[in-house]
């Protein structure tokens, strides 16, 4: 007896099994039964998506570097003010902030969204608390603050765009 084997159609791009009546692959979005124009549009979009992914990875990496810098700067400023004012509470606060930022930096590779959101909002809180103590402190080191904030925000939005829920 002759054995009949039905071969199921698969996506030519990612080899996901397709059902006969579907036009698009549900895994990669390739228009298997689409026109030539639709298929070339797919390839163009994929190139752009890959470029965006690279940009996001770079932004997360520079946000991570920013966290290391912030950790160091908190410690240096803590020591500086301690030697100038001999106020131990500033040194303790800055040392704790420095450790927190170091931990967040270490954890950024694994959970970029959670760490960068925590780091950004913690930094904004530190700026706000300093403004309560001395409103003029808002203006001191304003360029450095803007640079840190913009790098953290860029990294954070890139992390929120990750396609894998595991990393955010």
């Amino acid at each position: 007896m002759e054995e009949l084997t039905m071969q199921q159609p698969v996506c030519s791009q990612c080899e996901t099994v397709l059902t006969t009546e579907t036009k698009f692959c549900t895994h990669c979005g390739y228009p298997e039964l689409g026109s030539e124009k639709e298929q070339s549009q797919f390839h163009a979009k994929r190139v752009m998506a890959n470029q965006q992914h690279e940009v996001n990875t770079k932004r997360i990496a520079s946000a991570q570097k920013t966290l290391y810098w912030m950790s160091g700067i908190f410690l240096v400023f803590g020591l500086f003010y301690f030697f100038r004012t001999e106020d131990i509470s500033i040194l303790i606060t800055n040392a704790i902030l420095s450790i927190l930022y170091l931990l967040l930096a270490f954890w950024t590779k694994e959970k970029p969204f959670a760490t960068l959101l925590s780091a950004l909002l913690l930094y904004l809180t530190v700026i706000a608390i300093n403004a309560v103590v001395d409103p003029m402190s808002l203006l001191s080191g304003i360029i450095m603050k803007v640079i840190f904030l913009s790098l953290l925000i860029k990294g954070l939005y890139s992390a929120s765009q990750s396609t894998s829920m595991r990393t955010i």
């Binding site: 698009f24 692959c25 549900t26 895994h27 689409g34």
Partner: peptide, 10 residues
């Protein structure tokens, strides 16, 4: 699914 099988929307 990552994409709609009918219209290809992501």
């Amino acid at each position: 699914s990552n994409y709609c099988a009918h219209c290809g929307t992501s």
